[in-house]
Simulated assay, not measured.
Amino acid sequence: MHATLTAPSARRTRDRATLVCGIAGLASCMIVIMADFTTATIYERLGLFADTISAMAAGRGAMIMDTALLILVGGIVAIAFGLWRQRLPGWRWRAVIIALLAVAGIIAAIALFNEYGDGDVNDSWTFHYRLVYALGIIFTAVPLLAAHDLKPIDRRLWLGSYALGAAWFVAGPLMFTVPTGWDGLLERVAAGIMLLWLIGASIFLIRQPDGR
């Protein structure tokens, strides 16, 4: 009898934690999007095409963008924790969680180091771009590995995750080949792909407590 009475309460606790993780992830994505547009409007004017996110974070909008990126880091950690709570079997799901935590660590390093080759710190340009390269490689695995375990749950999630993974795989390398006047736009396309996956993962977690 005791086990019967306590089981529903424990279930509600687990669901509430998953819901909070999803809300935190979704909110962090919205905040970083608003921060980018706010910085472009207030400080950089119409710099969304020509100015990369890194350039804005190194300029007058550093406080806004760095804060938003750190909030995003917290949101990614929350998403990883929420996905971990789903307890899906297999090594791919665990790899997705580890990769998300690595992505969070890289973004935190980019925001906290706050150097973009402006000469303040020796070799800072190389350090920054090494982080960007690592981010590109590691995040590629996230949607592709997650898609495998999402297929039995919802075919739309499976297809969406694969599509975003393929789009990221194509858009990432292109960022380093486009003219300077357009690199900001392509970087935002790539960032948008990542945010779309994170938003999808957040909504997935938000809906879990309802069993849908």
Rank of each mutant, 00 (worst) to 15 (best):
A111K: 04
W125K: 13
G59W: 05
V73Y: 11
T41R: 06
A7D: 15
I64D: 08
F139C: 06
G74Y: 14
F113D: 14
I137M: 11
R45D: 07
A62I: 05
I107L: 14
F127I: 03
N122P: 09
A62P: 07
L70D: 06
R11E: 15
S124M: 01
W91N: 12
L46W: 10
T39C: 09
L72I: 02
W84C: 09
R87A: 05
A146C: 08
I138L: 04
D36H: 08
R92Y: 08
N114W: 04
A111D: 08
W125G: 14
A141R: 10
L144C: 06
I106Q: 01
M63Q: 13
A57Q: 09
T18F: 04
I23W: 06
G25N: 00
V96W: 00
I106L: 07
E44S: 15
L101M: 13
R87S: 08
D36R: 04
T39V: 11
M56P: 03
Y133N: 10
R87E: 11
M56T: 01
S28D: 12
F113E: 14
V103M: 09
M65W: 11
I97C: 01
S28R: 01
M34H: 00
I31Q: 08
T18M: 14
I79Q: 02
D15F: 10
F81N: 12
A104K: 07
I79R: 00
D66Y: 01
D15E: 15
G136Q: 06
I137F: 15
M30N: 02
F81P: 09
T18N: 07
R92D: 11
W93Y: 09
R11F: 13
D120K: 14
Y129G: 01
G82D: 05
R92F: 05
A24V: 13
G136T: 04
T39H: 00
L131I: 01
A104D: 10
A78E: 14
T41D: 12
L19N: 06
G117W: 00
Q86C: 08
L83T: 00
S9D: 11
H128P: 03
L19F: 13
L19Y: 13
V103T: 10
M30C: 05
A111S: 13
W93P: 04
Q86H: 11
D51V: 01
D149N: 15
A55K: 10
I98S: 02
I138C: 02
L150T: 02
D36P: 02
